[in-house]
Design a protein around this nucleic acid. Sequence first.
DNA 1: CGTCGCGAGGTTAGCGCAAACATCATATGA
DNA 2: TCATATGATGTTTGCGCTAACCTCGCGACG
Lengths: 344, 344
Amino acid sequence: MDPAGPRRPPTLADVARLAGVSAMTVSRLINEQGKVSRPTADRVRLAMQQLRYRPNPLARGLAGGRTQTLGVVTFDTAQYGPASTLLGIERAARERGYGVAIAAIARPDHDALRDAVLSLHDHQVDGLVVIAPFVATAGALRDLEGTTPVVVAEAGHPGEAPIVGIDQGHGARLATRHLLGLGHRTVHHVAGPDDWIESRLRVAGWRDELASAALAAPPPIETDWSAAAGYAAGVRLVEQGDVTAVFAANDQIALGLLHAFHARGLRVPDEVSIVGFDDTPESAYYTPALTTVRQDFGRLGEVAVALLDQRVADPSLVVENKQLITPTLVVRSSTAAPRHRGRG
Amino acid sequence: MDPAGPRRPPTLADVARLAGVSAMTVSRLINEQGKVSRPTADRVRLAMQQLRYRPNPLARGLAGGRTQTLGVVTFDTAQYGPASTLLGIERAARERGYGVAIAAIARPDHDALRDAVLSLHDHQVDGLVVIAPFVATAGALRDLEGTTPVVVAEAGHPGEAPIVGIDQGHGARLATRHLLGLGHRTVHHVAGPDDWIESRLRVAGWRDELASAALAAPPPIETDWSAAAGYAAGVRLVEQGDVTAVFAANDQIALGLLHAFHARGLRVPDEVSIVGFDDTPESAYYTPALTTVRQDFGRLGEVAVALLDQRVADPSLVVENKQLITPTLVVRSSTAAPRHRGRG
DNA sequence: CGTCGCGAGGTTAGCGCAAACATCATATGA
DNA sequence: TCATATGATGTTTGCGCTAACCTCGCGACG
């Protein structure tokens, strides 16, 4: 049957020949543009199956401008949040027939983000999701205006592109309110890096909630999100001596805190209560199980892709520039009413 | 200067015109094929800068077959190992001038892997890294033979494609030997899923080491890698009653174990010693700090990409079909000599 | 009964680039 | 001195596909 030879993949023209139609008819069928009669469509579909035809996305991109690919810019970290979001995006994209190209940025600065965005733009991605919640990246997305639809996931600069995020301020308020509701006099905060937008939003939410209770916010301790930094912060808090409730900016920091308090003989939650943020799968198995704020990253990815897909289909579409998913508080065993007074 | 209008991106032809040369000369310069004189090269480079020319990867791919893109197939999980490996690959790829397209597979089966591989193949990636260490995926890579170079990362079926991995068996032996060396009579194992190749390799290494010490292996407990499953396994081990040393197949499982033992009042390491696997950044802050086997995933990504790059440059290259990176043991506070006899 | 409108298709021309081959100097050696 | 290699360029062609335009036949409508 098959003449021997370096069997190159079948092209649209091969399908057309086999089905006895022109290439355009096949193309129309693939792109669902209608204008193809039932019998013809059936013949073409049969030919496609026989040849195991697969459209060449590169050629489609070159000729038509659509590549069926979405780009994702993410931060070069295996942390739970960004990693989960990336996978959520990938899943949602695949379900909609898109491929996914990624570019990770190593440093949280403007130029790195620009490079990543341009490189994906070169590959003519149909749309772009940016997970790069850094303060310093403001303006890096400007050039793309009117070129490629962009959605910012998790946190971003208002006005640059529509943002799909989890309501960080709300989460922080939930955590703080929970601790205050338990009877703590105040709540300390161990924050993430100040150059992350999310960090700032969590700090702001915590401050707001304290303010609502007419309480002054103690100075937050800044960290780099790591358990190691959380541990160091924990040591400082122990030395400070009057701490009964701590809101940690993520679960890793909370773990470091737990470790530090345990090492110094401070019992959690008897003497100090701790709330984390993220609800990583492990946090339920910390000792004690961590009370934390749950963020649904999978949903975030889905919503971001859904929005992007709309904008790809209709670039003129005007969308709300901010869509927030509401996080929830998961109460476990690291928080309790204060039983022992702080030493101060 | 600029005539108004819908300014489309400059093409190679634009550069050629501005530099007063033919398109081919520009193309040769870009592709570093030599054969371009210094003065000409300088003129062309200047023109490229002036126009801010960026080659169109789609067109390059269509015309030349090279897309400067690597594909990565990974498993749909935010777990530390796969996520770190993915990022390591991305970093190494970017340093070598490649873009990265990803495809995540949701189920560990043959068809899912096939789909992922084909979709990346459609996009004409120059090479493919597969991180999909499942038993069930054997043979899914066969079709690509002679088409696209493939490297399997972490674990794979021998003979399908070159494998770059971390020596799982060695890591498992390290862990087991450490516990035995401490004086434990035997070592229990809480394994990962049996349909993961890595799981099986760790089980095998643990068995081997026990065998070398003339010990029979107690039946391993199978889990799904999660802390929750580790917790359940821990509960079973506590009920069993004669356990003094446990080797957990990863750090999450170890965390679950820690939690279960703590909940049942069993002190670690006084009554039971635990060794994990991976050395996630958090494991040093578990309570107690976890003794574990460190895997350098970043390095894994680098080595995989380096190998792939070689194979892309010279497809006829014959490479060793297995390159192993040696893991190391990180001793922390979750292991100690047995002080209390088991109850059995 | 002409023609208008529309559905179903075909034709032509590129998208931006690189492979393959052609061209034309200039060096190199017999 | 002339064939011949070698380096530096240009020309042509086509990768696989789609946009834009064109054709043809047929039913509806005045």
